[in-house]
Design a binder for these strands. Structure first.
Lengths: 193, 193, 193, 193
DNA sequence: TATGAATGAGAATTCATTCAT
DNA sequence: CATGAATGAATTCTCATTCAT
């Protein structure tokens, strides 16, 4: 399995840096190779093509979000608490990894529809976990049982995503994590029974 | 003034179609020209370069949203009603113009940072009007007076944007406008005093 | 006859200015038309094509040199004196008309072989007059009777041309006409019997 | 160092042929690449852009003139002999390399001002060596000590250049090298004390 | 495994010239 | 005579990918 070989993650991490520092369209394969300290051709021993690198970047890094969210869900908290922790986790991971934030919020979105669809498929795993929290809250009476889960999920994710993207476009000029309480209050208000 | 000559809008409209049908990176100037029924060179009598076409597309089409929203704001409705109408208007314009929806939600986002920044500047006009509604509601007690306007605006816009983008990525398979009541209920709930 | 119509010379003069100020390759027909105060299309009522403008510029302006040289030849001077006056005249005309100097010494030389050949044909008239002086001097014993007239003519013209071109490339930083005595001394020395 | 790799000179030589056979403006990069037997993209592994190819052509080929002239200067000859040899060398190199002659005397002169200035800077090295010969002759009494070295140099170079250019424009119809004695006689006469 | 030199397809833009008014 | 909007052909350079070593 390629993913276990040392150079795989080396190239993925190099891609994040190269894309963050040069922008999506200026992150040529040769730049990623140079950043990773390997030859251009070596890239193709680990990835099928450039698209495969980008998908892998998203996949590997999205894993952090998913793993954390799974841990949150397994806790004994209320659905509301889980949602709050999810928001905090999301903002925290991106706050503490600004290269990654730039790549996921700005640069990777410049990719074409084909790549975007594959990225969305990876994102789905995360959104399914979010749905679990919402459904749990609806079932136990914390959240409005009449609401449409899909719309609610799109509100929660869309809100977080818009706030994070704006923060990145503003060059991280303010503290993102401090926004969490205000976001939580608004969203819980929207969802509550 | 070039913008008033008939070929200006002819080319802008052709660009929307060419981009929607071919994708951002496959919408070459020659394709736009062909779609507009003019020679390649004619494009450059009305636009400085290709970037200028793209910016103009966004500007001209965003004008529809802004004009409608201004009319909504001038009505004697409550802030809640205005917000509901704004949501309906947004979904309606994109629902009834699927080429435009594809272009604004998917294709134009593949543009480089420079164009993105100019697009954001145009979008700002729309967001300022949204802020006006939110502030009006806070002042007259409809909305929570303690909330952060910027976060609230990002929630409203992020929610609509996420829902619309998902709809476009799902190839408009369901009726977008029918989602409006569910969205309005959630968002009003979030904002209410 | 087009040459007698007022706009003919108006366009020729505009071409000299447009070429001198913008450079050969940046002196588009539209710039020449603008400088002449006429519409682009009007140019084509007086000239067959752009090449025709350039040839005409050279032809009309070269006339000044030829007319002056003919007057010099008709004087009762010695061949040596005529040669000296020819040199002075050449430097004087270009010194006092820097736009023209730039155009003939630098810009028009960027034209392609076809135009250069036509320019050379026009230049020939001037060189034939120069030959007359040289032959007169050889016949009356002022100049070396064994020398090759063509080589001598190329030396005289090549020297003046090189000196003038260098002066233009140095942005006319020194007084060109003051160089005349030094040039005359060298060339007369070369030619003398 | 790129200049030492075999493909560098291969491309430079191909450029001379492509320009001589097609003319400056018709010598597209793809033609040069084809002539060199490499892919278009390979050109850009060795040259920054097309301008860089043209400058390099002049630089590499001018090197022949400069190297030969340096050898001539190092000989124990008189200044007069050195000047004669310089003239012969100049005519000889161009005579025996007609493609190069066409390129330097006609085609490369169609380049824009920027390239012309860089070409002139390269030419300067050659002209400085010519100055050395002239100064040597003035110091040892062979040449007129009162003459202006710059004017003398411009006469020598201008004469050779005019004669060579005329020969090229006449499609090399006569033997250029046979003109050397006549040129030498005239120029030495001009310079002598 | 790893290298990196070589490949070659693909697109924005300019500008001389025309011709309907 | 004069206009100027419209035309459309033509070319440099980039960069993902390959493959001989």
């Amino acid at each position: 399995m390629k993913r276990n070989k040392p150079k795989y993650m080396q190239i993925v991490d190099a891609a994040v840096i190269a894309i963050a520092e040069n922008g999506y369209h200026q992150a040529q394969v040769s730049k990623i190779a140079k950043q990773a300290g390997v030859a251009d051709g070596t890239i193709y021993l680990y990835f099928k093509n450039k698209e495969d690198i980008l998908i892998s970047v998203f996949q590997e890094k999205m894993g952090i979000f998913v793993d954390n969210l799974q841990a949150i869900i397994k806790s004994g908290d209320t659905a509301s608490d889980k949602l709050c922790k999810m928001i905090e986790n999301h903002l925290h991971v991106l706050s503490s990894n600004r290269h990654l934030a730039t790549v996921t919020q700005l640069e990777l979105r410049q990719s074409n529809k084909e790549i975007r669809l594959k990225i969305n498929a990876i994102l789905k795993e995360y959104l399914i976990l979010l749905d679990q929290i919402l459904i749990e809250g609806m079932l136990n009476g914390e959240f409005n049982q009449a609401m449409d889960v899909r719309i609610a999920r799109q509100m929660v994710f869309g809100t977080i995503d818009e706030i994070t993207t704006t923060w990145v476009m503003n060059d991280n000029r303010y503290n993102l994590l401090e926004q969490a309480p205000k976001i939580q209050r608004l969203l819980l208000n929207a969802l509550k029974a």
